[in-house]
């Protein structure tokens, strides 16, 4: 059971990685150059799937957090952590990619684009959940804290997005993205599947490792033996006092 999910996790990660290579070969060398942005536009094939993946894994973490809170089972706790971790890694990648894209396109590494700003806020919000988790030793309390912090942070995602969008639209037009031509669609979709599989594979691996750690931490030692009956007959004298 355990080894099978390790194998599955590793296999999914490998397939995901292989697909990623294929997608980027297609994206970098086969797909036509993007009309407005030129070769810079090819970052699209990694950037957009990363964004989808980050949101998807946060959503998964949100669901697992509800499961963890509801059932109190460590499997859900480990799954929450695994997906928050994968989502956070993707968010950080997203921030780096977004800045790299923004520099040649908008002339700056950082802009108050709703998507970029939301990613930054999410990276902070979910990163702290992982930090919080490290600081609590008691397993039950840690599971609860992780779960509620994940739920509270996830609910913030749409609010942050719309508030920044609104805030932004009042002093500069929101960056619009062109509709994507079909020859560009193919590598994009392959890359999306690749990121998804890679993320799932890593989540499964991370989930198993975390679960094994949690179970080892809480492995029940044998109950102590029932005590020997106490013999009072040898008690000498009346109580002192």
């Amino acid at each position: 059971m355990t080894s099978r999910s390790y194998v599955a996790g590793a296999a999914l990660s490998a397939i995901g990685f292989a697909l990623l290579v294929v997608a980027h070969y297609l994206g970098l060398f086969v797909a036509p150059r993007e009309a407005m942005m030129g070769d810079v536009g090819r970052i699209l094939y990694v950037h957009v799937p990363t964004a989808w993946g980050a949101l998807l894994f946060y959503l998964g973490a949100f669901v697992a957090a509800i499961g963890s809170l509801w059932s109190g089972r460590r499997g859900w706790d480990a799954a929450t952590t695994a997906m928050v971790e994968v989502g956070t890694v993707m968010t950080f990648l997203l921030l780096v990619q977004g800045s790299l894209w923004a520099r040649p396109t908008w002339g700056t590494y950082w802009t108050w684009d709703p998507r970029l700003t939301t990613s930054a806020v999410l990276a902070a919000a979910f990163g702290v959940v992982l930090l919080l988790r490290r600081l609590i030793d008691q397993p039950a309390r840690r599971a609860t804290a992780t779960a509620v912090a994940t739920i509270v942070a996830f609910v913030d995602v749409p609010i942050v997005y719309f508030s920044v969008k609104w805030w932004n639209s009042l002093h500069q037009p929101v960056s619009s993205r062109q509709t994507i031509d079909s020859p560009m669609m193919q590598p994009l979709l392959i890359a999306a599947v690749a990121v998804l599989l890679l993320g799932i594979g890593l989540s499964v691996l991370r989930w198993r490792v975390e679960l094994a750690r949690l179970l080892a931490e809480e492995a029940a030692p044998d109950l102590p033996d029932a005590p020997a009956p106490l013999d009072l007959s040898g008690a000498s004298g009346a109580p002192r006092g």
């Binding site: 999410l122 919080l132 600081l135 804290a145 942070a153 719309f162 805030w167």
Partner: peptide, 21 residues
């Protein structure tokens, strides 16, 4: 939790970005 003085703002500040805006 140990380190709560730091954790509270770290948790709170990103969350309330919309309210702050």
């Amino acid at each position: 939790v140990a380190g709560r003085q730091l954790l509270l703002p770290l948790l709170l500040f990103p969350l309330i970005v919309p309210a702050l805006l």
